[in-house]
Write a protein that binds this DNA or RNA. Structure first.
Length: 575
DNA sequence: GCCGTTTTCGGCCCGACTGTTTTCAGTCG
């Protein structure tokens, strides 16, 4: 059973217990357990085999036993017992905005068990007869159902980022804003973002609100108050804005950046010091009352509880508060540390721009080098380069080196890993490149053992310098292929192969927790855009953000090196 | 159900907003 399946079961247990009206802390235990399992870099079965299940923060005797049952039999009587008590649609009810566990309980008791029935009952005005629900609740529920039908999806980091930039640009142009920042999961650079949260300071909040709700991209105004407004955008994402006083900007930014789990742990840590943290500031609680400690900046908030400021990407309750206490927060990699991009495509395969155009665009970003990594021949759909064309391609690269001086252009390839683990160019051809990154582009549905063996075999080839987009996922569209990522990373460490964090925002592959696991195994990383056009080169920032979420430091990423150092550190450079 | 710089028992983050209410419950972030 996969971690994802186990996490879903615990999450559903939490939801069902909540509807039942169980102790909220028991509910939270299961919710947190589900989050924990999702964030693990390796299968629970592996952890269990090492006998370390109980050492996971939040796993006790009861839940450890349930995990073992699931791993052994794939079934959990406790879970199945709960499922008997509810119609299968209970989870769909809870997805409706404005509908929580209490309302679900009420609905079920009234015999409403499907979303269709709920919709009909609301339209017929039958809900208002129930105690606790009124006419407004009916409208809210109908709107919530409509919202789920039309949108309901989280956006990729790239889409959310563009939308936030549009909003911020618009506000700067039409409203008297002073400080302004997008908070929430976007600021933490999560791979998917549910809504946009903008925080602003201004001495004329009403004008900011007016400007916000009248943006062209607004499709519906959900709320329009003096200091807080909410809109639905034409992109299908909700955007919220709040104006806060300058002395509370840091407090609000910290608060609305989250994550929820980070804030819970931080406040718990504060309470132990008799300090209260909220979105207005940090306060020392004494017998005489409260004394304000700060709140204008995030630094003041963390300093109030004796901690250093920490980057938003770390705020996931993955050990960052403990690390901060002990003074061992990582010094995270920055975008400005990146000196080159080692995966991109030119017109020789499926890219839109020539080698020279890509080189000039990269140079404009301040890079010292690039590798142009066109596809290998079996990628016919992507116009992979046959061996016969490689000499002419090399000639063009050499011409580009002369035409675009000041940036090193490595002659690279993104070679296909075939189903049997062999590579799509023979070794003597691979030897002629300056840089080889190997990737899987076919046979997604292979069984896990075979896929793992396939990739590891490719890593054993002495001409492979790096592994590209290691799990093949496309966020929200294609699941990662079944692969034992831990075994792959160990093989990469053994053979000295670098592993890519693909920065393309629909991929972000390795993902954050896998990057962190790679770091723990001593694997060297590359952050590459996989650009198919010059204007995609700036997507690098999403790869860097993902690396930061994985606690990655500059020294662990090879494309922070100078070209001279890089060439020595690549696998072929060490031969 | 978990956990321990108060604790093996008694806690478990904090506040705003909304709607349905006569003082609060439910939901959300």
């Amino acid at each position: 059973m996969t971690n994802r399946e186990i996490a879903r079961i615990f999450s559903e247990i939490g939801l069902m217990l909540e509807v039942k009206g169980e102790n909220v802390f028991k509910v939270r235990t299961y919710e947190r357990l589900a989050d924990l399992v999702l964030s693990l870099p390796e299968p629970l079965a592996t952890i269990r085999a090492r006998g370390e299940l109980r050492q996971l923060q939040g796993v006790g005797d009861s839940t450890a036993q349930k995990i073992e049952q699931l791993l052994d039999s794939g079934a959990l009587p406790y879970y199945e017992g709960l499922r008997q008590e509810f119609p299968p649609t209970v989870f769909e009810f809870l997805k409706i905005p404005g509908v929580g566990p209490k309302t679900v309980k009420l609905l079920l008791e009234a015999g409403i068990t499907t979303v269709e029935q709920l919709e009909h009952a609301a339209q017929a005005g039958q809900l208002r007869t129930m105690r606790g629900l009124g006419e407004k609740s009916e409208q809210d529920i109908l709107r919530g159902i409509g919202q789920i039908k039309s949108f309901g999806q989280r956006a990729t980091l790239g889409v959310a980022s563009d939308l936030a930039e549009t909003i911020v640009g618009h506000l700067r142009a039409c409203a008297p804003v002073e400080q302004m920042e997008a908070a929430g999961s976007l600021r933490r650079a999560k791979e998917s973002v549910g809504d946009i949260d903008i925080l602003v300071t201004s001495d004329r909040p009403e004008e900011v609100m007016d400007c916000f709700v009248h943006m062209e991209i607004v499709s519906e105004v959900i709320a329009h108050g003096p200091t807080k407004s909410m809109v639905m955008t034409t992109a299908g994402m909700q955007a919220d804005i709040r104006v806060v006083p300058p002395e509370s900007f840091g407090a609000a930014l910290q608060y609305f950046t989250g994550s929820k789990e980070h804030n819970i742990k931080l406040r718990d840590f504060a309470v132990r010091q008799k300090i209260k943290l909220n979105e207005y500031g940090a306060f020392k609680v004494t017998a005489k009352g409260e004394k304000r400690l700060g709140g204008a900046t995030e630094e003041e908030m963390y300093a109030a509880v004796g901690l250093p400021w920490m980057p938003p990407e770390l705020r996931e309750d993955q050990g960052e508060i403990e690390a901060a206490r002990e003074g061992r927060l990582p010094k995270l990699i920055e975008l400005s540390d990146i000196r080159g991009d080692l995966q991109m495509h030119s017109t020789w395969s499926d890219g839109h721009h020539t080698v020279e155009e890509m080189a000039r665009a990269a140079k404009a970003l301040g890079y010292a080098y690039i590798a142009v990594t066109d596809h290998s021949p079996s990628q016919t759909i992507a116009n992979g380069v046959p061996v016969a064309n490689l000499a002419r391609r090399l000639a063009e690269i050499e011409a580009a080196r002369k035409a675009a001086p000041g940036i090193a252009i490595l002659n690279g390839t993104e070679v296909d890993i075939k189903r049997d683990g062999s590579l799509d160019y023979p070794d003597e051809v691979l030897a002629q490149f300056d840089f080889v990154i190997a990737s899987v582009h076919s046979g997604w549905k292979m069984e896990e053992g075979a896929m793992t063996a396939r990739i590891i075999k490719a890593l054993e080839n002495p001409w492979v310098d790096a592994l590209g987009h290691p799990t093949g996922r496309i966020i929200g569209q294609r699941e990662p292929y079944a692969v034992d990522i831990d075994a792959v990373l160990r093989a990469a460490a053994k053979h000295g192969v670098a592993v890519e964090i693909n920065a393309y925002p629909d991929r972000l592959d390795l993902k954050d927790v896998h990057a962190r696991h790679a770091k723990s195994l001593g694997v060297k990383l590359l952050i590459n855009t996989d650009a198919h056009a010059a204007d995609q080169l700036p997507l690098m920032r999403f790869g860097v953000a993902t690396a930061r979420r994985g606690w990655i430091e500059k020294g662990e990423v090879l494309n922070t090196l100078t070209v001279r150092e890089l060439v020595k550190r690549l696998r072929r450079g060490r031969r």
